[in-house]
Design a protein around this nucleic acid. Structure first.
Ligand SMILES: [Mn+2]
Ligand SMILES: [Mn+2]
Ligand SMILES: [Zn+2]
Ligand SMILES: [Zn+2]
Lengths: 137, 137
DNA sequence: AAAATTTTGCAACTTTGTTGCAAACTCTTA
DNA sequence: TAAGAGTTTGCAACAAAGTTGCAAAATTTT
């Protein structure tokens, strides 16, 4: 819905522009992770590459989307839950990357497991990325 | 020791060349993860950028080193344990990246925790990357 | 020591990401 | 609802990261 994107932008004190609206809508429609490149491809030539970079960066800063670490060096982005706010991400779920269709899922139902670190190491953030075969492959 | 690198290359049926020996020695000396860029910097202008790319790629294929996923999009490499062989990595440890000194550790002592996935998802590889403050910071 | 094989370095190119700036757009306020 | 202030966009130019083909150099085999 066009309205959701609008509301989210407003709530985050962002000017509502065509690029921001459409890129955000894309995330709501697809409901899985996207890379810069996907967005460029899907939106066609509509927005400048630089605009897409800047939009994604803004969304990350505002806590609207988060990045997902991958073994190859691509950067993927996915929607945050509502608890994330400017400068403070509170995502506590793991990620799944399908080796076949390469879809990337946020598995909100699976929370990050405890890990016991050696003496002297103080954890701040734990990222778990599982790869394998997804439910559709 | 120059000899260790030599042996490892031989065991993996790789021709022993200056670049391979020196890059591999670097991993043994430093004993933590390195990125392409580190290697270029440390070895000075001695080897071509392309050679470093190709050497790292070869080492990964042979199971001599493995890559470590990171949230920013840098690619880090670290030595594998002996059980890794051509085409088959058997690393079962987690990684720690220090936010202060940005050193990346393979925590061999900490094994990857179990994760229970939703129905339909079949795990093949689980990557755990913890970031925070390391034992030296 | 020569021949066969592999690796290297170079050049040229692609892809990815960054920056400064004027023009276009969005928001505010009267 | 129109002008002005502020923000965002697209372009150009650049920098960094990664890839490919190929001849020359090095390594391994015979
Ligand atoms: Mn996620
Ligand atoms: Mn490791
Ligand atoms: Zn799949
Ligand atoms: Zn540290």
């Amino acid at each position: 819905m066009s309205n959701l994107a609008y509301e989210v932008l407003k709530r985050n004190q962002l000017s509502v522009t065509e690029s921001r609206k459409q890129i955000l809508e894309l995330f709501y429609e697809r409901n899985n992770a996207l890379e810069h490149n996907d967005i460029e491809r899907i939106t066609g030539e509509k927005f400048d590459r630089v605009t897409i970079y800047r939009t994604l960066q803004t969304f990350v800063e505002k806590g609207i989307i988060h990045t997902i670490p991958t073994a190859d060096n691509s950067v993927r982005y996915a929607l945050c839950k509502d608890e994330c706010t400017e400068g403070h991400h509170h995502d506590n779920h793991i990620h799944f990357i399908c080796n076949q269709c390469s879809t990337t899922y946020c598995l909100e139902a699976v929370s990050v497991p405890e890990v016991l670190l050696p003496k002297g190491f103080q954890p701040q953030l734990i990222e778990v990325v599982v790869s394998g075969k997804c439910k559709n492959c």
